[in-house]
Write a protein that binds this DNA or RNA. Structure first.
Lengths: 119, 119
DNA sequence: AAAGATAGTTCCCTTTTGGGAACCACGCCA
DNA sequence: TGGCGTGGTTCCCAAAAGGGAACTATCTTT
């Protein structure tokens, strides 16, 4: 299992807790996945693919697995055929929503400052 | 210049602004640097090294340079010898402080939830 | 004359991340 | 019987990130 990042969070020691959050939330598609589930609620795998078309299937499942192991998202499988799999935020995952909102607000201000005056 | 990440932020297009913030804030020592400057104010290079002893000199300068290019930290050089270089947050960098505080609060709750019941 | 302090840079290597293409399983429906 | 749709996995490779050790500059102190 070479592409696995399990347990890092629970095994390492940190100078500050912010590192924990950034470790969990780091990954090319992670912020977008959490943001999407946070603003739009439960989504099926295929819906997420359509929302993030430039993420490959492999990357999407990989990042979702990581979030699941960290307890941020939960995965519900309906034993139908063709399969139905739904992803949603857990309780602690849902508590990230206001934080992500604030980050987004900061980023908008940041980008605004970059555009005015030069560049 | 292979270890440079300049301009990514201003040249790419993003689905959501959260990605901008996570891109700027991604890097092994970035969150800790910003957190330190945010809670303790201006610091000299050597002080940062002492605060983060497991960061190599190379990594520390590299991450500080990236933050400088993104306009999050500012670097003041005093032309003395031996050299004195001070790092501090810019205006927009200082506005990250409450966000980081909230992230930290979330992470503390997250870790608390992980420790109670199993693991 | 040599060593120390500060803040770097450079070169080389290892590890981690990310991405593409092909493959699988299952039952349904034409 | 052979696609189709869904939600994956596997293998292999390329790119990016991180890390170690050695080197630099400058003036001061011993």
């Amino acid at each position: 299992m070479p592409e696995d990042r399990t347990h890092k969070v629970s095994c390492s020691s940190y100078v500050n807790e912010v590192e924990v959050a950034f470790e969990i939330l780091s990954g090319k598609w992670i912020p977008l996945i959490v943001w999407t589930l946070s603003t739009e609620g439960t989504k099926r795998f295929g819906e997420l693919r359509r929302i993030m078309p430039s993420a490959t299937q492999k990357m999407l499942t990989q990042q979702l697995r990581a979030l699941e192991k960290h307890g941020i998202v939960s995965r519900k499988i309906y034993p139908e055929v063709p399969p139905v799999v739904e992803y949603s935020l857990t309780d602690i995952g849902r508590k990230l929503s206001p934080v992500l909102q604030d980050i987004s607000t900061w980023a908008i201000e940041y980008l605004a400052g970059r555009n005015s005056s030069s560049r």
